[in-house]
């Protein structure tokens, strides 16, 4: 077991390693977490994800830009690949049991924002069905039905392609109004997301990360409520 001091030390190094895109530091701290028996879920959420949250804030403040975020993401995956295999069944249960279908809409091949959001879902323990880029609109609805996913995340990087989103949202909501839909990409604004009928919105790579975290915690609350409701 690890004492508080050791735990805090490892978490800080994980977080710092992500923030300062120091993949080596993250790898060393992750291996140490495993060896010392630190709860891997704790290490992921309060180390790696906490670091990524800071990265999102630095982006908002225009201290970081997209190249920096991409390097931070590499560092984060360096740790995630080590820690995730050690998650036990019990911890997996504590993680949100969720599935997400994610992809870039037809006509658009820009997948950076999509990959960053995917990363946050990976971190949170979601099962991610990544459809890639240039995805035909019907495919999102089909994949949602096939997998019974509770979130659909759509991305478009160009004004000329974001119109596809409106159609997808309509298609999915018609069949299953409870699915949470998140949209993101450079041409989108909050108002456009509302017009499209989306539940969540991320304007850019940095706040896609934050929005994903928010959306996950909303789902976690919903999940908790459902569990309470199910208790006799």
């Amino acid at each position: 077991m690890v004492d508080d001091e050791k735990r805090n030390d490892i978490l800080k190094r994980l977080s710092d390693g992500v923030v300062y895109y120091d993949e080596e530091k993250v790898i060393v701290a992750s291996n140490e977490a495993v060896e010392d028996g630190l709860d891997p879920f704790d290490a992921i959420m309060n180390g790696l994800a906490a670091g990524m949250e800071i990265v999102g804030q630095l982006y908002e403040k225009q201290e970081y830009f997209v190249p920096e975020i991409l390097m931070c993401a590499d560092a984060l995956y360096g740790g995630l690949n080590i820690l995730r295999p050690h998650l036990k069944a019990k911890e997996m249960k504590e993680a949100v049991k969720g599935q997400v279908v994610i992809g870039v809409v037809q006509g658009d091949v820009h997948d950076i924002g999509k990959n960053l959001v995917k990363m946050m879902f990976d971190v949170a323990g979601f099962t991610v069905h990544d459809l890639g880029a240039d995805v035909p609109l019907e495919k999102f609805a089909e994949e949602q039905v096939r997998t019974d996913s509770n979130i659909i995340a759509l991305s478009a990087m160009m004004t000329t392609t974001m119109m596809g989103m409106k159609k997808v949202i309509h298609m999915i909501k018609e069949r299953n109004p409870d699915v949470a839909i998140m949209v993101g990409g450079a041409p989108l604004t909050k108002e456009v997301a509302d017009i499209f009928g989306a539940d969540g919105y991320a304007e850019n790579a940095g706040n896609a990360v934050q929005e994903a975290i928010k959306m996950i915690s909303r789902l976690r609350e919903m999940h908790a409520k459902q569990q309470l409701g199910a208790t006799p």
Binding site: Q106, G107, D108, V109, A133, D134, M158, T160, T161, M163, G164
Partner: peptide
């Protein structure tokens, strides 16, 4: 370049880099 044949407004795109 992929040219779409649908009636939707879909601009051509490049599926493979």
């Amino acid at each position: 370049v992929q040219y779409y044949k649908t009636e939707d407004i879909l601009y051509p795109s490049i599926p493979e880099k």
